[in-house]
Protein backbone atom coordinates (compact mmCIF):
# COMPACT_ATOMS: atom_id res chain seq x y z
CA UNK A 1 0.00 0.00 0.00
CA UNK A 2 2.65 2.40 1.09
CA UNK A 3 4.61 1.73 -2.05
CA UNK A 4 1.96 3.30 -4.23
CA UNK A 5 3.17 6.83 -3.66
CA UNK A 6 6.76 5.79 -4.16
CA UNK A 7 5.97 4.39 -7.56
CA UNK A 8 3.97 7.43 -8.51
CA UNK A 9 6.97 9.45 -7.45
CA UNK A 10 9.06 7.29 -9.72
CA UNK A 11 6.91 8.11 -12.72
CA UNK A 12 8.48 10.79 -14.91
CA UNK A 13 5.12 11.84 -16.24
CA UNK A 14 3.69 12.38 -12.78
CA UNK A 15 6.76 14.43 -11.85
CA UNK A 16 6.57 16.49 -15.01
CA UNK A 17 2.91 17.35 -14.56
CA UNK A 18 3.18 17.97 -10.82
CA UNK A 19 6.14 20.31 -11.09
CA UNK A 20 4.31 22.46 -13.63
CA UNK A 21 2.45 24.05 -10.78
CA UNK A 22 5.51 24.48 -8.57
CA UNK A 23 7.71 26.30 -11.03
CA UNK A 24 6.23 29.82 -10.78
CA UNK A 25 6.29 29.69 -6.97
CA UNK A 26 9.85 28.49 -6.87
CA UNK A 27 10.86 31.17 -9.31
CA UNK A 28 9.25 33.93 -7.26
CA UNK A 29 10.74 32.61 -4.02
CA UNK A 30 14.23 32.20 -5.47
CA UNK A 31 14.42 35.63 -7.06
CA UNK A 32 12.80 37.30 -4.06
CA UNK A 33 15.19 35.75 -1.55
CA UNK A 34 18.26 36.30 -3.70
CA UNK A 35 17.35 39.94 -4.32
CA UNK A 36 16.64 40.65 -0.66
CA UNK A 37 19.73 38.78 0.53
CA UNK A 38 21.91 40.27 -2.18
CA UNK A 39 20.92 43.87 -1.57
CA UNK A 40 21.06 43.41 2.17
CA UNK A 41 24.43 41.68 2.11
CA UNK A 42 26.10 43.84 -0.51
CA UNK A 43 24.55 47.15 0.43
CA UNK A 44 23.58 47.23 4.08
CA UNK A 45 25.60 44.69 6.04
CA UNK A 46 28.46 46.33 7.97
CA UNK A 47 31.96 46.48 6.56
CA UNK A 48 34.51 44.00 7.85
CA UNK A 49 37.27 45.53 9.94
CA UNK A 50 40.15 43.68 8.31
CA UNK A 51 38.91 42.77 4.86
CA UNK A 52 36.89 45.90 4.21
CA UNK A 53 34.35 45.35 1.46
CA UNK A 54 36.06 42.41 -0.21
CA UNK A 55 34.51 40.00 2.28
CA UNK A 56 31.10 40.59 0.70
CA UNK A 57 31.79 37.97 -1.95
CA UNK A 58 31.15 35.57 0.93
CA UNK A 59 27.44 36.06 0.28
CA UNK A 60 27.84 34.18 -2.97
CA UNK A 61 30.83 32.02 -2.17
CA UNK A 62 29.53 30.39 1.01
CA UNK A 63 25.99 29.47 -0.13
CA UNK A 64 27.27 28.06 -3.41
CA UNK A 65 29.92 26.08 -1.53
CA UNK A 66 27.24 24.55 0.72
CA UNK A 67 25.04 23.63 -2.21
CA UNK A 68 27.77 22.23 -4.42
CA UNK A 69 28.41 19.74 -1.64
CA UNK A 70 24.74 18.88 -1.04
CA UNK A 71 24.33 18.50 -4.78
CA UNK A 72 26.82 15.63 -4.77
CA UNK A 73 24.83 13.86 -2.09
CA UNK A 74 21.56 14.50 -3.92
CA UNK A 75 23.14 13.02 -7.02
CA UNK A 76 24.48 9.96 -5.19
CA UNK A 77 21.26 9.33 -3.26
CA UNK A 78 19.20 9.60 -6.46
CA UNK A 79 21.55 7.11 -8.07
CA UNK A 80 21.19 4.74 -5.11
CA UNK A 81 17.39 4.97 -5.20
CA UNK A 82 17.45 4.28 -8.93
CA UNK A 83 19.69 1.25 -8.45
CA UNK A 84 17.72 -0.20 -5.56
CA UNK A 85 14.13 0.37 -6.69
CA UNK A 86 14.87 0.24 -10.43
CA UNK A 87 13.07 3.51 -11.09
CA UNK A 88 13.76 5.77 -14.02
CA UNK A 89 13.12 9.19 -12.54
CA UNK A 90 15.95 9.15 -9.96
CA UNK A 91 18.46 8.44 -12.71
CA UNK A 92 17.18 11.47 -14.59
CA UNK A 93 17.59 13.59 -11.46
CA UNK A 94 21.09 12.21 -11.08
CA UNK A 95 22.01 13.01 -14.64
CA UNK A 96 20.59 16.51 -14.30
CA UNK A 97 22.43 17.14 -11.02
CA UNK A 98 25.96 16.33 -12.20
CA UNK A 99 26.55 19.29 -14.56
CA UNK A 100 24.83 21.65 -12.10
CA UNK A 101 27.18 20.48 -9.38
CA UNK A 102 30.18 20.94 -11.61
CA UNK A 103 28.99 24.48 -12.42
CA UNK A 104 28.57 25.23 -8.72
CA UNK A 105 32.08 24.05 -7.85
CA UNK A 106 33.44 26.23 -10.64
CA UNK A 107 31.59 29.21 -9.14
CA UNK A 108 33.05 28.35 -5.71
CA UNK A 109 36.56 28.20 -7.13
CA UNK A 110 36.13 31.41 -9.14
CA UNK A 111 34.68 33.44 -6.25
CA UNK A 112 37.29 31.94 -3.94
CA UNK A 113 40.10 33.04 -6.17
CA UNK A 114 38.60 36.50 -6.68
CA UNK A 115 38.36 36.77 -2.92
CA UNK A 116 41.92 35.45 -2.60
CA UNK A 117 43.43 38.23 -4.70
CA UNK A 118 42.82 41.07 -2.16
CA UNK A 119 43.16 38.75 0.87
CA UNK A 120 46.27 36.74 0.04
CA UNK A 121 47.57 38.74 -2.89
CA UNK A 122 47.41 35.73 -5.23
CA UNK A 123 44.70 34.29 -7.41
CA UNK A 124 45.33 30.79 -6.19
CA UNK A 125 46.33 29.65 -2.74
CA UNK A 126 46.53 25.99 -1.75
CA UNK A 127 44.03 26.60 0.97
CA UNK A 128 42.29 23.54 2.45
CA UNK A 129 38.82 24.64 1.40
CA UNK A 130 39.67 25.64 -2.15
CA UNK A 131 41.68 22.46 -2.63
CA UNK A 132 38.77 20.36 -1.39
CA UNK A 133 36.39 22.04 -3.82
CA UNK A 134 38.87 21.52 -6.63
CA UNK A 135 38.83 17.81 -5.83
CA UNK A 136 35.04 17.86 -5.61
CA UNK A 137 34.93 19.30 -9.12
CA UNK A 138 37.16 16.39 -10.24
CA UNK A 139 34.65 13.97 -8.74
CA UNK A 140 31.84 15.63 -10.68
CA UNK A 141 33.96 15.52 -13.84
CA UNK A 142 34.50 11.79 -13.36
CA UNK A 143 30.78 11.09 -13.01
CA UNK A 144 29.97 13.19 -16.08
CA UNK A 145 32.76 11.63 -18.15
CA UNK A 146 31.62 8.13 -17.23
CA UNK A 147 28.02 8.99 -18.02
CA UNK A 148 29.03 10.30 -21.45
CA UNK A 149 31.23 7.32 -22.28
CA UNK A 150 28.48 4.72 -22.58
CA UNK A 151 26.29 4.24 -25.64
CA UNK A 152 23.67 2.39 -23.67
CA UNK A 153 21.72 4.74 -21.41
CA UNK A 154 20.81 2.19 -18.73
CA UNK A 155 24.42 1.18 -18.33
CA UNK A 156 25.49 4.82 -18.23
CA UNK A 157 22.96 5.50 -15.47
CA UNK A 158 23.89 2.53 -13.33
CA UNK A 159 27.63 2.88 -13.78
CA UNK A 160 27.68 6.56 -12.87
CA UNK A 161 25.39 5.85 -9.90
CA UNK A 162 27.92 3.34 -8.56
CA UNK A 163 30.74 5.82 -9.09
CA UNK A 164 28.77 8.56 -7.32
CA UNK A 165 28.20 6.22 -4.37
CA UNK A 166 31.86 5.32 -4.15
CA UNK A 167 32.57 9.04 -4.22
CA UNK A 168 30.16 9.60 -1.33
CA UNK A 169 32.11 7.20 0.85
CA UNK A 170 35.28 9.01 -0.14
CA UNK A 171 34.24 12.64 0.25
CA UNK A 172 34.49 12.81 4.06
CA UNK A 173 37.82 11.00 3.90
CA UNK A 174 39.12 13.36 1.24
CA UNK A 175 37.99 16.40 3.24
CA UNK A 176 39.56 15.20 6.45
CA UNK A 177 42.80 14.33 4.75
CA UNK A 178 43.01 17.63 2.88
CA UNK A 179 42.35 19.48 6.15
CA UNK A 180 45.06 17.48 7.82
CA UNK A 181 47.43 18.06 4.91
CA UNK A 182 46.80 21.79 5.10
CA UNK A 183 47.52 22.09 8.81
CA UNK A 184 50.65 20.02 8.26
CA UNK A 185 52.08 22.29 5.61
CA UNK A 186 50.83 25.72 6.60
CA UNK A 187 50.02 27.33 9.90
CA UNK A 188 46.32 28.05 10.06
CA UNK A 189 46.71 31.82 10.06
CA UNK A 190 45.40 32.26 6.54
CA UNK A 191 41.85 31.17 7.20
CA UNK A 192 39.49 33.48 5.40
CA UNK A 193 36.69 33.38 7.90
CA UNK A 194 37.65 33.04 11.50
CA UNK A 195 34.65 32.41 13.68
CA UNK A 196 35.24 35.50 15.79
CA UNK A 197 35.32 37.94 12.90
CA UNK A 198 31.72 37.39 11.88
CA UNK A 199 29.20 39.73 13.36
CA UNK A 200 25.54 38.59 13.65
CA UNK A 201 24.45 41.49 11.46
CA UNK A 202 26.63 40.00 8.75
CA UNK A 203 25.08 36.56 9.26
CA UNK A 204 21.38 37.36 8.70
CA UNK A 205 21.76 38.26 5.03
CA UNK A 206 23.98 35.20 4.68
CA UNK A 207 21.15 32.97 5.89
CA UNK A 208 18.78 34.61 3.46
CA UNK A 209 21.24 34.02 0.66
CA UNK A 210 21.73 30.37 1.66
CA UNK A 211 17.98 29.70 1.63
CA UNK A 212 17.64 31.69 -1.59
CA UNK A 213 20.37 29.73 -3.32
CA UNK A 214 18.85 26.45 -2.15
CA UNK A 215 15.48 27.38 -3.64
CA UNK A 216 17.21 28.54 -6.79
CA UNK A 217 19.13 25.27 -6.96
CA UNK A 218 15.91 23.28 -6.53
CA UNK A 219 14.39 25.26 -9.36
CA UNK A 220 17.33 24.64 -11.70
CA UNK A 221 17.45 20.96 -10.79
CA UNK A 222 13.74 20.56 -11.54
CA UNK A 223 14.09 22.39 -14.85
CA UNK A 224 17.04 20.24 -15.91
CA UNK A 225 15.22 17.09 -14.81
CA UNK A 226 12.18 18.12 -16.86
CA UNK A 227 14.38 18.58 -19.92
CA UNK A 228 15.92 15.17 -19.34
CA UNK A 229 12.43 13.65 -18.96
CA UNK A 230 11.30 15.08 -22.29
CA UNK A 231 14.50 13.91 -23.97
CA UNK A 232 14.18 10.36 -22.68
CA UNK A 233 10.44 9.99 -22.99
CA UNK A 234 10.24 11.64 -26.40
CA UNK A 235 8.78 8.48 -27.90
CA UNK A 236 6.02 8.03 -25.37
CA UNK A 237 2.46 9.02 -26.08
CA UNK A 238 2.07 11.63 -23.35
CA UNK A 239 5.07 13.64 -24.51
CA UNK A 240 3.79 13.50 -28.07
CA UNK A 241 0.39 14.71 -26.88
CA UNK A 242 2.04 17.44 -24.87
CA UNK A 243 4.06 18.71 -27.79
CA UNK A 244 1.21 18.37 -30.29
CA UNK A 245 -1.27 19.98 -27.92
CA UNK A 246 0.98 22.96 -27.43
CA UNK A 247 1.66 23.47 -31.11
CA UNK A 248 -2.07 23.18 -31.86
CA UNK A 249 -2.98 25.98 -29.49
CA UNK A 250 -0.33 28.10 -31.10
CA UNK A 251 -1.95 27.34 -34.41
CA UNK A 252 1.07 25.65 -35.93
CA UNK A 253 -0.03 22.10 -36.58
CA UNK A 254 2.74 21.44 -39.08
CA UNK A 255 4.15 17.99 -38.77
CA UNK A 256 5.89 15.81 -41.27
Amino acid sequence: MNWQWLHRLGSPRWFYEKTNAWLPWLMVCAWGLLLVGGIWGLGFAPEDAKQRNSYRILYIHAPVAFISMSCYYIMAISGAVGLIWKMKLPFMVMKAAAPIGLGLTIVVLATGSIWGKPTWGTWWEWDARLTSYLILSFLYLGVIALQQAFQNRDTADKASAILALVGTVNIPIIYKSVDWWYTLHQPATLKIVGKSTIDPSMLYPLFVMIVGFYVFFTLVLILHTRTEILRRESRSQWVKDLVLGKSNTKGEGAES
Partner: peptide
Protein backbone atom coordinates in the same frame (compact mmCIF):
# COMPACT_ATOMS: atom_id res chain seq x y z
CA UNK B 1 33.07 0.39 -14.39
CA UNK B 2 34.99 0.93 -17.62
CA UNK B 3 35.64 -2.64 -18.73
CA UNK B 4 32.95 -2.60 -21.42
CA UNK B 5 34.34 0.58 -22.98
CA UNK B 6 36.83 0.07 -25.76
CA UNK B 7 38.92 3.03 -24.70
CA UNK B 8 38.67 2.90 -20.95
CA UNK B 9 42.31 3.71 -20.20
CA UNK B 10 42.21 7.47 -19.76
CA UNK B 11 38.73 7.37 -18.26
CA UNK B 12 39.91 5.04 -15.48
CA UNK B 13 42.60 7.52 -14.50
CA UNK B 14 40.07 10.32 -14.54
CA UNK B 15 37.62 8.62 -12.22
CA UNK B 16 40.08 6.85 -9.95
CA UNK B 17 42.71 9.53 -9.34
CA UNK B 18 40.56 11.78 -7.14
CA UNK B 19 39.76 8.73 -5.01
CA UNK B 20 43.49 8.11 -4.50
CA UNK B 21 44.12 11.54 -2.98
CA UNK B 22 43.84 10.57 0.71
CA UNK B 23 46.20 7.63 0.16
CA UNK B 24 48.69 9.90 -1.57
CA UNK B 25 48.52 12.51 1.19
CA UNK B 26 49.16 10.09 4.02
Amino acid sequence: LTVSLRKGGVLISLIVMPLYIPILIF
